[in-house]
Computed example of a mutant assay.
Amino acid sequence: MRDETKYRDELERRFLAETRRMRGRGLFLLSAGGLLWLYVVLRLVLPWSVLGADPGCGAPLFERLELGYRDGVRNPCAVIPWPTLLAVLAVSVPVLVTGAALYVRGLVSANLGHYVRGMTR
């Protein structure tokens, strides 16, 4: 016959280890999403020459958008990076939401586990 106290302690230890792993995965995804946002911000405010691209273009956020009647946009430096930056932001949103959900789930589960242990002992 098994010892109930040791069995419960082992279950709680495994449960808390799983909540730590869940919080760690959540923090990893949150930091990955944060790095994606940092990339977008740096890409918007730094000139292209700093990033190793076309040295004739400035920072996309500060470029003046000049429209022409016949040829459309006369200053392509103001338009070219936006699709890539919006795609990076679109990828970062599910990463951040998943990271936040995992972190909160791990945190709430650990707190609930501690509460249940305190109430049953």
Rank of each mutant, 00 (worst) to 15 (best):
M1T: 08
M1P: 10
M1H: 09
E4W: 10
E4M: 12
D9V: 06
D9T: 08
R13D: 07
R13V: 04
F15K: 12
L16D: 15
A17F: 05
M22D: 00
M22A: 01
R23S: 09
G24I: 00
R25P: 00
R25Y: 04
L27V: 00
F28N: 00
L29R: 01
L29S: 07
L30I: 01
S31T: 08
S31M: 10
A32M: 02
A32T: 01
A32P: 00
G34T: 02
L35G: 05
L36M: 12
V40G: 00
L42D: 14
R43F: 09
L44V: 05
V45R: 06
L46V: 12
L46P: 12
P47A: 11
W48A: 15
S49E: 15
G52S: 05
A53G: 04
D54E: 14
G56E: 13
C57H: 12
G58M: 02
A59H: 11
A59S: 13
A59R: 13
L61F: 09
F62D: 05
F62R: 09
R64T: 15
R64P: 08
L65Q: 06
E66Q: 13
Y69R: 11
R70Y: 01
G72E: 05
G72N: 05
R74P: 06
A78P: 02
A78H: 02
I80K: 13
P81M: 02
W82L: 07
W82C: 08
W82D: 05
T84C: 10
L85C: 11
L85F: 12
L86F: 14
A87D: 01
A87H: 07
V88S: 02
L89Q: 09
L89V: 12
V91T: 11
S92G: 13
S92K: 03
S92V: 03
S92F: 03
V93F: 05
P94K: 01
P94F: 04
V95H: 01
V95W: 00
V95T: 02
T98F: 01
T98K: 01
A101T: 12
V104I: 07
V104A: 10
R105S: 10
R105P: 00
L107T: 10
V108H: 03
V108S: 03
S109D: 08
S109M: 07
S109P: 02
A110C: 04
L112C: 06
G113I: 09
G113W: 08
H114D: 10
H114P: 08
R117I: 11
G118V: 07
M119D: 15
T120L: 11
R121L: 09
R121H: 14
